[in-house]
Design a protein around this nucleic acid. Structure first.
Lengths: 263, 263
DNA sequence: CGATCGTTTGAGTTTGATCAAATGTGGTGG
DNA sequence: CCACCACATTTGATCAAACTCAAACGATCG
């Protein structure tokens, strides 16, 4: 079960920048702690001392910041395979909170384990860096979203991005996927009031672009939805067609610190 | 002159995660190309094929994204010592544009040079990763800013952040520093109209919190300004008190690929 | 079968946008 | 040194997108 959890992480890192066989083997030796959670819980509070590095293996989590007046801005969602918060690896304390959207589970690697891995296998370090850059690209797009798009465009854009990312991790079937968000959570992501989120979602449904059923999202007209959102998936495509990084990874692998089995 | 430029980069990386002597020496061998620019120019257009990795050695640059309708969102400013866009190191093409705010100069390292550095010196790789994480923290704070703060708070917050960062690179004297931004640029950063930026800036000046003189910003009441902004510099302090990263860097240095001179 | 939480709907308000024009200001060339 | 131009800032008036408040409706669960 544990090794299955690490496979999520390996797949993620591998998709960003190819790992060598020896790196994969080393990673599989890690035995993360599994922590289950319910929906809409607080997992890590801002300011909490940094624990291990965790990644989602099931369900959805989010990162958010709270303001003085209690309002919050969700700054990112983590889908299965995503790191909950890489920055924790480097900081003393969490610089924002982490919560769950749906129920699910995270795997937690003690920081020392990851430190040892990055120490011995620079390819892992490189992959982690790539993951960070990919996340930043998404954050930037959110900034554009909240800053310069109308409420309708914003909502459509978030749905497009979510759908794309769910697709990328194989969680979409028949143009539909889980959609566990409350409208209040969407509001905190989009910087809109819950009431207004309700109205724009209704607009999208009435236009027959999407449909909700229990907690499932159906995308009825992806093309039109993307058009309204001004969505272009380009910023998400960090995973593939990396330039140069494959060579780096290979070069790093040529002189591994740890004896590496070659195929 | 060139080596002086690289020193900026070394200082930056070193502040995030300590470099070893050999890493510094190796970096000093790099001979970046220097490119000067005037104020308010476009330096890299979104979609342009990726060139070298550049960092600011004088003046201020910004990253921005353009929307269909021509509006733009500035997503980051780069002060002297900052990388203009690290992500370019990994992508085929720029996924957003880069422009200048003031006149100044950037140093450009061919990608192959940086690739070789990261290949031979994982400590450099680690530092670059830390830099990326620090940048992401700023982007997230901008997202909170644009998403959940009022126009006045937003403007105050941006000024606080800018002032803090300028201080960090030693460009503040007597509570004042260069301030080359046009109100239109501030508007594009804060997701406000230029007219409204004018009004809130006026409010801050009338409250005697700041003063502008030619292109200089004077902060008259930093405490009150921060209070209005809800600014806490915590998210900026990645540079120091890193946890564990020093040990990583040291461990990496113990087995350098390249023969390293020891003091 | 309440109770709780999330969603929906309506009415009035506010923040910040837009449009338009006036007023600085710095730079250039005569 | 001045006239002029381009550009940035300032001010006023009007408008619209999204917020707030309030209440009703609906689902889910013990």
């Amino acid at each position: 079960m544990d090794s299955l959890a690490v496979d999520h992480l390996i797949r993620k890192l591998d998709s960003c920048s190819e790992l060598t066989r020896s790196e994969r083997i080393a990673m599989r030796k890690a035995e993360p702690e599994i922590r289950r959670f319910g929906a809409h819980e607080e997992l890590v509070r801002e300011g909490a001392p940094a624990g291990g590095v965790s990644f989602v293996i099931e369900g959805i989590t989010c990162r958010y910041k709270l303001l003085r007046d209690g309002r919050r801005q969700i700054v990112a969602y983590s889908l299965p395979g995503d790191m909950c918060d890489l920055r924790i690896f480097i900081l003393e304390r969490a610089d924002h909170s982490i919560g769950s959207v749906s129920s699910g589970a995270v795997a937690i690697l003690p920081r020392t384990v990851l430190q040892n891995l990055t120490r011995k296998y620079p390819g892992v370090l490189h992959s982690l860096w790539c993951v960070s850059l990919a996340e930043e690209a998404i954050t930037r797009e959110w900034l554009v979203n909240v800053g310069h798009r109308t409420a309708l465009e914003r909502a459509a854009h978030l749905i497009c991005e979510y759908f794309y990312r769910m697709q990328a991790v194989g969680l979409v079937r028949d143009a539909s996927c889980e959609f566990p968000f409350t409208q209040a959570e969407l509001a905190d992501s989009l910087a809109l009031s819950p009431v207004h989120v309700n109205r724009v979602l209704m607009q999208l449904r009435r236009a027959e672009l999407i449909r909700f059923e229990s907690h499932t999202l159906h995308v009825l007209d992806a093309r039109e939805l993307q058009s309204i959102a001004g969505f272009s998936p380009h910023y998400l495509q960090v995973a593939h067609r990396l330039r140069g990084s494959a060579e780096i990874a290979r070069a790093l692998a040529e002189n591994p610190r740890q004896p590496a089995r070659r195929r």
